[in-house]
């Protein structure tokens, strides 16, 4: 009797496991297919080329040109990455090559907490600090008038959010560089900095690129924090002090009207599909590179 019960329990848990595994494997497929299915409508009427490269955005007339939103997304993402890159590289090198292990242990929770802060909080902080800073100080510095709600503000907030994310990966990458390599370089008479520049960074090159690849895909999909500071004005931004309107913000701002305008829901799902494809693409490549790296190490 007891054995029977044990067997039954085992079979039951096997079934449960199978269902769960099936679910997990199916999830990405279902997400992609459902978004694709929903965007078919707008794809059929407008065509892929028109959707991606047209700047005409007139939802009521059924014209959906995503070009301004794609450009805004690119601007914000690239700006965020550019600002975050030196901070992440310098900190990661310092924490793994120069500082005591005690400092690294002290900084780890700081990085983790930064990573855990919700994006809406970053958004509030952006509105309170970054937006006025851009509007009152940075823009006038270049003789430009700006409300502060701009591509630059989006990029700045994004760069802060990306720091913990990229930094964690970079620290892991630099930790995998064997000490023997640094020692070899040092014993040839190289200074510590030369060793880092020519050997450590070089050895970690693939890992560094992957870290920023992951960061890029993260930045591209970040929604709320950017939305709150970027201005959300449809149009092609001419400078980083202009407001922008990235794809995720577009989706988030218009879900309310989505069902009241024909084809609008299909268009917004298409925007989500673009996000998904871009993010998956960079994630895929970066993860693959990291796996290769781990195999070698």
């Amino acid at each position: 009797m007891a054995l029977k019960l044990r067997k039954f329990k085992d079979q039951f848990s096997s079934l449960w496991i199978k269902i769960s595994l099936f679910f997990v494997v199916l999830l990405p497929v279902v997400i992609t297919l459902s978004l694709l299915y929903k965007s078919m409508f707008v794809l059929e009427t407008n065509g892929l080329k028109e959707l991606l490269f047209s700047s005409v955005w007139r939802p009521l007339a059924g014209q959906f040109g995503f070009w301004p939103f794609i450009i805004s997304s690119l601007w914000v993402t690239i700006l965020g990455l550019l600002i975050t890159t030196p901070i992440c590289m310098f900190s990661a090198i310092f924490l793994t090559q120069y500082s005591s292990s005690r400092l690294l242990r002290f900084m780890q929770p700081v990085i983790d907490i930064l990573a855990g802060i919700p994006s809406v909080i970053y958004g509030v902080w952006g509105i309170l600090i970054i937006v006025p800073m851009v509007g009152r100080y940075l823009a006038p510095l270049f003789g430009i008038e700006s409300t502060g709600f701009s591509i630059l503000a989006g990029g700045l907030v994004l760069s802060v959010m990306l720091i913990p994310f990229i930094l964690n990966v970079l620290i892991e990458v630099f930790k995998t560089v064997p000490v023997e390599l640094s020692e070899a370089s040092l014993s040839l008479g190289a200074t510590k900095w030369q060793t880092i520049k020519f050997v450590v960074v070089r050895k970690s090159f693939a890992g560094i690129i992957s870290a920023f690849g992951l960061g890029l895909s993260r930045a591209f999909g970040e929604t709320i924090a950017v939305l709150m500071v970027v201005g959300n004005v449809v149009g092609l931004p001419k400078s980083i002090f202009d407001p922008g309107y990235p794809l995720p913000a577009l989706i988030a701002n218009n879900y309310g009207e989505m069902l009241s305008i024909p084809m609008y829901d299909s268009a917004l799902m298409f925007a989500a599909l673009i996000l998904l494809v871009v993010v998956m693409f960079f994630n895929f490549l970066s993860r693959l590179a990291i796996i290769r790296l781990e195999k070698k190490a």
Binding site: L27, L275, N283
Partner: peptide, 25 residues
């Protein structure tokens, strides 16, 4: 490892896409 790869990709999908998917569902 294949499963881990899929899960890492899922982890990378932005929450707005999950939102859009949830809405569709």
């Amino acid at each position: 490892n294949g499963l881990r790869f899929i899960l890492d990709l899922l982890w990378g999908i932005p929450s707005i896409v999950y939102g859009a998917f949830g809405f569709t569902l």
